[in-house]
Design a protein around this nucleic acid. Structure first.
Lengths: 174, 174
DNA sequence: CACAATTAAATCGTGCGCGATATAAAGGAG
DNA sequence: CTCCTTTATATCGCGCACGATTTAATTGTG
C-alpha cells in the first residue's frame, strides 16, 4: 500500500475520486494541524468550552442549547424531524429531550394520529428562555473574531464537507 | 439588550470587537445552518461517523486514532504535551491512554527525572498499527470530496477560529 | 530545613453520541 | 382478517469530554 518513511504519515492510494490526488499526496507529510478531521474535532470542542460558562447561566448545556435553538426556530417538531435537522440519532435525542423536559423547558407527547411519533413542544419557561438567550450569539460572535460574511461563508464550506461525508457513507453501504 | 420578534433569534449587542457588527446583525434572522457552532458540531460528528467503521478494522475509536496520529508524529510525548497539542484535558487523556495501553498500542511510564510527569511511548504493536493505518486518510479524503489545497485552506480557517476562541477564553477569565 | 505554592496527572460525576437491540405502532400483502 | 414488513422511538452499554477535586511531586521562600 505504501511505505513508512521516518515514521511520517503518508497518504495511501485513493480508492476512487478526484484526479491527481494520489500524486499530490504521495511522499507528502501532513502536519497534524492540516488534518481537517483534527481541526473540526478540536475547534468544535473549543466552541463548546466557550459556550459552556455562558449557557451555564441559562441552565443549559451546549447540546441542549442547540436543540433549543432548533425548537425556538420551529416549535412542535417530531423527534425524527429534530434528529434529521440536527443529524443526531434518537438514542442521543431521547435522553437529551428527557433532561430538557425535567428542566421544564419542553414537553414530549405521543402524536395522537400516529403513536409511534413523539412531538416536542416548548413550555412557557422554554419560550421565556429564548429571551434570556438572545445575547448568547453576540457574545460568541465576539469570541469567534470574524465578520458575519466570513462566518457564513465558512459555515457553508463546512456544511458542504458534512454533506459530502453523508453522501459517501450512503454510497459505501450500498 | 434586544427585542424578541416573532420568536426569531436576533443578535445581541457585541460587547467588544469588530466595527459595524451590531448594525449588520440587528434585525437579521440567522438560519440554523448559518450558525458556525452548529456546522462544526454536526460536521465533526459526521467525520466521526465516517471514520468509525474504517477504524473499527484497526481496533481503534476516533479519538484513539487522533491520539495515535499525534504519537506516530512524535513518539515519547508527555501527557501534558499531548494535552496541549490535542487541546484535551488530562481527565480525558488519561482514561483514553489507559485504554490504548490495555490494547497494547502504547506504554505509559512516570518520568524518572520528574515523577509528576507521565511519558507515553509506542509499543511495537503501536508502530505496526501505523502501517495498517496508512490507507485511512486516503479513504477519508475521498469522502470529503475536496482537493488537498481546499482542505488545507479550510483547516487553516477553522484553526484560526479555534485560536480566536481560545484567546477570548483567556481574556475573559482575567 | 520546613513549609507553602505550584505543577502534573488522576479520579469522580455528569452529559453526551452512537451502534446494537428492543418495543410498539402503522401500513401493506395475501 | 391475519401476518409480515416497515417505521419511530426507546433502552443499553461503551467511549469520550470536561469541571471540580484529589493526590503526589517539584520548586521556591523564609
Amino acid at each position: 500500500m505504501l511505505a513508512i518513511k521516518s515514521r511520517a504519515i503518508y497518504i495511501g492510494r485513493v480508492r476512487r475520486g478526484l484526479p491527481d490526488m494520489e500524486k499530490w499526496f504521495e511522499g507528502r507529510e501532513l502536519n497534524f494541524e492540516e488534518f481537517l478531521c483534527f481541526s473540526l474535532y478540536s475547534t468544535n470542542h473549543a466552541m463548546n468550552r466557550v459556550y459552556t460558562p455562558v449557557l451555564k447561566e441559562l441552565g443549559l448545556t451546549y447540546p441542549q442549547y442547540l436543540v433549543m435553538l432548533a425548537l425556538w426556530k420551529k416549535d412542535g417538531q417530531l423527534v425524527g424531524e429534530l434528529g434529521q435537522k440536527m443529524h443526531l440519532e434518537s438514542s442521543t435525542l431521547t435522553p437529551l429531550l428527557k433532561r430538557l423536559e425535567k428542566l421544564n423547558f419542553v414537553r414530549r407527547q405521543r402524536d395522537a394520529e400516529d403513536e409511534r411519533k413523539v412531538r416536542v413542544t416548548l413550555t412557557s419557561e422554554g419560550h421565556a428562555l429564548h429571551e434570556q438567550a438572545a445575547c448568547v450569539p453576540g457574545q460568541i460572535l465576539e469570541a469567534i473574531g470574524m465578520t458575519p460574511e466570513e462566518i457564513i461563508a465558512l459555515s457553508a464550506q463546512i456544511n458542504k464537507v458534512r454533506k459530502n461525508l453523508e453522501s459517501w457513507s450512503l454510497d459505501t453501504t450500498e
